[in-house]
Design a protein around this nucleic acid. Structure first.
Lengths: 164, 164
DNA sequence: ATTTTTGCAAACCATTTGCAGCTGG
DNA sequence: CCAGCTGCAAATGGTTTGCAAAAAT
């Protein structure tokens, strides 16, 4: 799995862990060992993941955190504004929010890959449309679904051979 | 529940039922009584609904179709291009696709209401962005989340009273 | 007559929760 | 110490599925 982010990270003064501790402190909650393991692991690499992959990933790295705690912590991290949740399939996917610029997604329906992109227009559209309808908007999701270049190339030629 | 569509319907030559029958025929499948009940009921009024509401609605109208058949038929209707599925919460919502113009959504996170809007810019953006990334796009979802005017009015004044 | 569909109940599967014991501050 | 947390196992809740009886062509 890749460690590189497709978009340049935003410069932030606090580490994700510090920001999480602060969030928990305000609510009178605690930064425990399992939570520390999770936030470090999650922000160690930049990628999209779901709860199951996270559990498997941690197990592989020799760090055991129970599935329940993973789910509970993911919810906290979303509430804290550190992660964003994407509901593209039956299982939720997560991505970094904190320290990462706002962006939208291309979703390949063949291989399930998620590609990020940044487009200034979308923010403006969101604002204009919200205002038009009297909404106080708090966020948006713009997902373009289709077939990525890799899957396009992989499938079209195979089709040809089938016809021979 | 309202029967009126927020956007003007598209003129189509076939009824949803005809289109469904055609779709089934191609696959060697059958337009049965439960399926007829469902498609008529669904296209009788224009609104967003989920599987549960549909079952309840049918029961109220004295038409019994089993939950399994409802789920199975909803899937068919999506495959047939008659309905679109929206995954905004833990349960899928459905809306008319056939005979209805393409549009996007404002989602109120307070009352869960879905408001439709139409904006030409979005199609253009989708095309431009897809091309830029070599995607063959097949669709998109643009959902603006926030608080609708009704919920805004209902909440803000209450807050004030609480402070007195 | 044969293939598909239905309804029921059971299975599924991602996610949540109750609880007894553990832990952080 | 004591509120909050963990892990386990059990529960939940939306959705799917196996199967025997029923319906469609």
């Amino acid at each position: 799995m890749s460690n590189s982010a497709p978009l340049d990270p935003i410069v932030v003064s606090e580490s994700p862990e510090e920001k999480f501790r602060e969030f928990l402190e305000i609510r009178g909650e605690k930064l425990t060992e399992p939570r520390r393991i999770l936030i470090r692991h999650i922000f160690d690499s930049h990628k999209h993941f779901d709860a199951d992959e996270l559990v498997a990933d941690l197990r592989e790295a020799g760090r055991r955190v129970s599935r329940s705690t993973v789910y509970r912590t993911l919810r906290l991290l979303v509430e804290a504004g550190l992660l964003r949740e994407l509901r593209l399939t039956n299982r939720s996917a997560y991505e970094h929010d904190y320290g990462y610029p706002s962006h939208d997604h291309l979703h390949c329906t063949e291989c399930n890959t998620i590609v990020e992109f940044r487009n200034e227009e979308i923010q403006k559209l969101r604002e204009a449309i919200s205002q038009e309808h009297g909404f106080r908007s708090s966020g948006h999701r713009f997902v373009i679904s289709g077939v990525c270049p890799t899957c396009s190339r992989a499938r079209s030629p195979r089709r040809r051979l089938d016809l021979i």
